[in-house]
């Protein structure tokens, strides 16, 4: 069951088209999985449309020319999805939410990291980085906190991090106030989509040695 959602403010910014592209993408993917947030955004869109378009405006003479040139154009079909629907790892196939499907074909390959972790970077042309991360059963990320913001969407499976338990569809926000160690005991492991605007900061034991290099691992 989905327990964690974007805030109303984030959903409103998304509906306005004012949220950053990375945040917009992960919210869109969450909405593909969460009817409640999709309905909320539709509600915002209705209100925004009313605010933006309900007041009469003077007609501009220039618009008349535009009308004629538009009507000279033929009808067109809409955009059709033409993308990999599945993300593949080690012979396993994961179904992806609609918004992320186009990116399944754009990963730069999976790399196997410490602690039964797999990571596939997606180049979105945004600040920070975006990855699909898969944790095998018993896998974990060393305890860390964040210099910036980390957004995580659970795409398949479930995991815990010492603070909470997360299920498929959950939208998780972490920042410098959160120190956590994600791990999963689920038989099928756990696939997440993660957005990071600053490198992680590892907080315990030997993993602290990773900090000078954390940009190599996570940024």
């Amino acid at each position: 069951m989905i327990n964690l959602h974007p805030t109303d403010e984030q959903l409103l910014q998304f509906a306005q088209g004012l949220a950053s592209p990375g945040l917009s993408l992960i919210i869109a993917a969450h909405m593909d999985m969460c009817g409640k947030c999709a309905a909320r955004v539709a509600q915002f869109e209705g209100r925004l449309a009313e605010q933006a378009l309900s007041h009469p405006q003077a007609a501009e003479p220039e618009l008349q020319k535009m009308l004629d040139s538009i009507m000279a154009l033929p009808a067109q079909t809409g955009v059709k999805p033409d993308c990999a629907t599945f993300l593949e790892l080690d012979g396993r196939k994961f179904a992806l939410p609609r918004s992320l499907q186009r990116y399944a074909g754009k990963i730069s390959g999976w790399s196997h990291m410490v602690g039964k972790l797999w990571q596939a970077r997606v180049d979105l042309g945004i600040e920070g980085r975006a990855d699909f991360i898969y944790m095998e059963k018993g896998g974990s990320v060393p305890e860390h906190t964040h210099k910036g913001n980390e957004l995580t969407l659970v795409l398949d499976g479930e995991f815990s991090d010492g603070l909470n338990h997360y299920d498929t569809g959950d939208f998780i926000r972490c920042d410098g106030q959160h120190t956590h160690m994600p791990h999963t005991e689920a038989d099928e492991g756990c696939l997440v989509f993660s957005l990071l605007d600053q490198p992680l900061h590892f907080t315990s034991g030997l993993a602290r040695l990773l900090n000078p290099f954390s940009h190599l691992f996570f940024k």
Binding site: P21, G22, L25, T77, G78, V79, R98, S99, K106, G125
Partner: peptide, 26 residues
């Protein structure tokens, strides 16, 4: 996005399928 000279990696059609053909209505 175009003005900012971004590669058009994230486009509006990914975020809001307003202009996408419905294949199977969700």
């Amino acid at each position: 996005r175009k003005q900012q000279n971004r590669k058009e990696d994230i486009c509006a059609d990914d975020l809001w399928p307003v202009l996408c053909e419905q294949t199977a209505a969700p």
